[in-house]
């Protein structure tokens, strides 16, 4: 009898993470290279913010400190996407092409869980503490947020992360039909970059696009607004709704995709 439930999922995820960590640590040079490129990229991200705010105090009500808070959240999401989501879901594309997804589907565990925690780019995850440091610095520049503000920010952050992971999964699902979806992933990354700026600086339709289509705004600007104490039930509800909609939609698409899986010839 195979167990089910959260304990079983934790067992599967634990086994996969231990193996992926062991694999990642096999290549020390890759680790250092990933870490250096990730850190350089993160530090360079401050350039445009410095450039803008060296000329003016605020942009549409957002000060330099608030913008750095959004930037810190963007760096956090970027690190998690690059260190965790992209290596795993990117590997699915190769698995489909080579037919090795067969082995994933032969394991008595949820296939979506199996493909989502197989790999780690540990060097990229080093950006996570850097991002947390930037967020802490930005918060320290103003009155500290209340407990409820922090809680709402965390809920929005998690909901936004779920939405971004789901968006990647949706993109990967297309590879069951098209096999090569590299261009779609490049396009996603370039749209994710818009998340380094607060949503209000964009035109209304771009704001909506970055909330409901490529929901990077939900995971950067929404928590930043909550930490500034500028949240209401509508913002919280929208953030949660986007997370749930993406999670349900991507789960449905994943199941449909598996049913269409044709495997590779031997």
């Amino acid at each position: 009898m195979v167990r089910r439930g959260p304990g079983r999922a934790a067992q599967v995820a634990g086994g996969l993470l231990a193996a992926s960590l062991a694999t990642a640590l096999q290549y020390r040079s890759d680790f250092w290279m990933e870490m250096l490129t990730g850190l350089s990229r993160s530090l360079l991200a401050f350039g445009p913010v410095w450039l803008v705010f060296s000329h003016r105090e605020t942009v549409l009500g957002w000060s330099a400190d608030d913008t750095v808070l959004v930037l810190g959240l963007y760096l956090l999401v970027h690190a998690l996407l690059a260190g965790f989501v992209e290596p795993n879901l990117g590997a699915v594309v190769e698995s489909i092409r080579a037919g090795t997804l067969d082995f994933v589907l032969l394991k008595p565990a949820d296939a979506q869980l199996l493909v989502s925690v197989r790999r780690l780019a540990v060097g990229r995850l080093i950006d996570v503490p850097l991002a947390l440091g930037v967020i802490a610095w930005a918060l320290a520049q103003r009155e500290l947020p209340s407990g409820s503000d922090v809680l709402v920010a965390l809920v929005l952050l998690v909901s936004g992360l779920v939405a971004m992971y789901s968006l990647w999964l949706l993109a990967i699902c297309t590879s069951f039909w098209f096999v090569r979806v590299d261009n779609l992933r490049f396009l996603l990354w370039s749209m994710v970059d818009a998340g380094r700026w607060p949503l209000p600086v964009f035109t209304p339709w771009v704001r909506w696009f970055l909330t409901v289509a490529v929901p990077i705004g939900v995971v950067t600007t929404f928590p930043a607004l909550a930490l500034r104490g500028e949240w209401d039930a509508r913002l919280l509800g929208l953030g949660i709704a986007v997370g749930i909609a993406f999670a349900v939609g991507s789960r449905w698409a994943w199941r449909r995709s598996l049913a269409a899986y044709t495997s590779a010839s031997s």
Partner: peptide
């Protein structure tokens, strides 16, 4: 209850010793 062995494909973790794959399968098969 089943297994599929494919002579032309492999499930072993390429960069790790086979014992790591055995350990992983212990978790995956509970």
């Amino acid at each position: 209850d089943v297994t599929l062995v494919m002579g032309q494909k492999q499930q072993l973790l390429w960069d790790l010793p086979p014992t790591e794959t055995f350990l992983l399968n212990r978790a995956l098969f509970d």
